[in-house]
Each structure stands twice: as structure tokens, then as C-alpha cells.
Amino acid sequence: MGEGRIVEAFIGEYASGKSENAVNRALMLARAGRKVTLVDLDLVEPFYTLRPIARKLEKEGVRVIAWETSETMGLGEAGSVLKPEMRWALLAAGDVILDIGYGVHGAKILNMLEGVDQTPELKVYAVINIFRPMTSTVDAIVEFVRSLGRVDGLINNSHVGEETTIEMVCQGARVVAEAAAKLGLPVIATSALKPLAEKIGPRDCVGNPVWPLQRFMDASFW
């Protein structure tokens, strides 16, 4: 986990598992005794991602910057509204995990934050699920990741929900590894739901570290 400050942004396709990975990463850090701030930067559907689980996470010691239900009245539809605290999130002490929504602007959401230039430790990770048709092949992943702008690494989060098998995760790991090689990027990890992750072990079939995921997002609206 390293000694220095950890600042990571999770980006990816719609429903690729960005939020799930970001939440679990924040928890992983908090449980290791680190000070962590988790920021909901999903500007496409800002009010539906972290909001419903924020309190649960705060009990686990994660500071959450997201809209509260009671605050969203009068803000219109699922509008793209940046909360002022979000803009300053990178300046928070300790680790910062950013959950970045999908959309054609990719990593550009980072432009809206203060202090990106002064945060050399910032890493942007693209979460990939090969069972999403838009990122189902090596070429499609390469094209997609290139469209995102800045990306520093890939995370293999290939799954089909409850019916996911070890073979499917491994298939994802291989495809993502090949895409990463083409992109000249490292694969940071393979993430999988905890029971499956335990069966896979600490490393997946191509040697990536395995991050076990605890499901949180099913408690959110969608």
C-alpha cells in the first residue's frame, strides 16, 4: 500500500463498476488505519451513486463528499451539479479516492478540481468489465481508454453479476492485460466479489493482485 499519500481516481464505462471499486478501495485504506476521503464526482447521475450509502461508509471511518438527499431538493433533475466541497477535495489531508462518472468527457472532470497540478501522486485508473459490449474486446478497450484522456492504469472488473465464474474473471484478466500492453499501461488489479475473490486467491491467472469487493451499490438506487 506504500507509505505516501494515495490519490486515485476511478473512471470507466457506464456501469463498469467504478463506484463499487472506488468505495471498496476507500474502505480498504480506511481499514488499514489511513485517513481517507471518498468523493462522488459522478456528474451524469450524481444523486444516485454514493448518496444512499454515505452514512454506512462514514461509520467505517471514510469521509464522504457527496450530495445528501435533503440537499438535492430544488436542484432539478439528475442535473450536473458540482458541490463546492468537491472542487477542493484534492486539498484534503490524507488519501483521496475519486469516483468519476461515465460520459463523453472522460477524465476531463478532473479539470474542475483545484490542485491537480500540485498532486503528483494522483493516479487515474480505468475500470474495465469485458462483459460490457462497449469494452468487450482488446481493440474496443484500447479505443475506449484512449477516448478517456489521462489514464495511468487499468483494473479488470470483469463480471456478469451473481453468475460470474472464475473462468470469466480470468478471461477478463487476459483481455485487459493484452489491452494494457497495447496501451503501455499497467494492470493495477483484478477486482471481484469477495466470495469469488477468495476462491481465486491473492493473484489472478495472469498474476495481477486480486481486490475483493464487498457489495455496496445494490443498496443504492441502482
Binding site: N129, F131, R132, P133, S136, H159, V160, W222
Partner: peptide, 19 residues
Amino acid sequence: PIEGEKKAFMTGNEVVAWA
């Protein structure tokens, strides 16, 4: 758009677009 058949993991709106 889709060759043969394949397993996918998506949201419902995406499903409509693909269908």
C-alpha cells in the same frame, strides 16, 4: 451490432439501445 450471442452485463437503458 451483435455477432451470434453473448453474455453481457449492462443497465436497462443500454439494453434497449443494443436491442
